[in-house]
């Protein structure tokens, strides 16, 4: 029982349970708050993977900025509550759950049978070095400068698009 295993079980259970609770609650605000909990659990999992920079960005960007935007829109629109999980139109929901279970077991089969022959496992030092902000920043500003600029342009386009879409008349 290593520390990585204990932390993985803890944060993995938090993420998995909160994702299931998110899609089964009928109140939208409760769903959004469970999604925030899911993002926080994922940040913990990134810490167990030695990805410190991504963990911090996950908390700031996802759990902070994006989910606040969601909650703000929910506050503005105040949508009515849905019916409970399997009440309205149960056949399509049962079908969806069956399809999901089939794909999940396919993926599990694939994961176990594809990794048996060539296991991926780097040393802990290489893994820690890959997650530092120095390494990511060095790649971002040298080899990947063009995608970085494109991402900035994408954010500008998204800002203008959101303003145009949310205008009174268009």
């Amino acid at each position: 029982m290593s520390l990585q295993f204990i932390l993985f079980i803890l944060f993995g259970l938090i993420s998995a349970a909160s994702s299931v609770l998110m899609i089964t609650r009928k109140d939208v605000v409760v769903s959004a708050l469970f999604l925030v909990l899911n993002f926080a659990g994922l940040a913990g999992i990134y810490i167990t993977l030695n990805a410190q920079f991504i963990a911090v960005v996950q908390v700031i960007v996802y759990a902070g900025a994006i989910m606040v935007l969601f909650l703000f829109v929910i506050m503005l629109l105040r949508p009515e509550n849905e019916k409970k999980f399997l009440e309205a139109n149960p056949s399509i929901k049962i079908f969806a759950v069956i399809i999901g279970a089939v794909i999940f077991f396919q993926l599990v089969y694939l994961i176990f049978f594809s990794s048996a022959h060539n296991p991926v496992n780097a040393s802990v030092e290489a893994s820690i070095k890959a997650g530092t902000i120095e390494e990511i920043g060095k790649q971002l500003y040298t080899n990947y400068i063009l995608p970085f600029e494109a991402a900035g342009f994408l954010l500008l386009a998204a800002t203008i698009g959101a303003l145009v879409l949310a205008k009174k008349k268009f």
């Binding site: 780097a122 070095k129 390494e135 990511i136």
Partner: peptide, 8 residues
Amino acid sequence: FSSYLGNS
């Protein structure tokens, strides 16, 4: 995968 391959 990034962490297990040691590639950022």
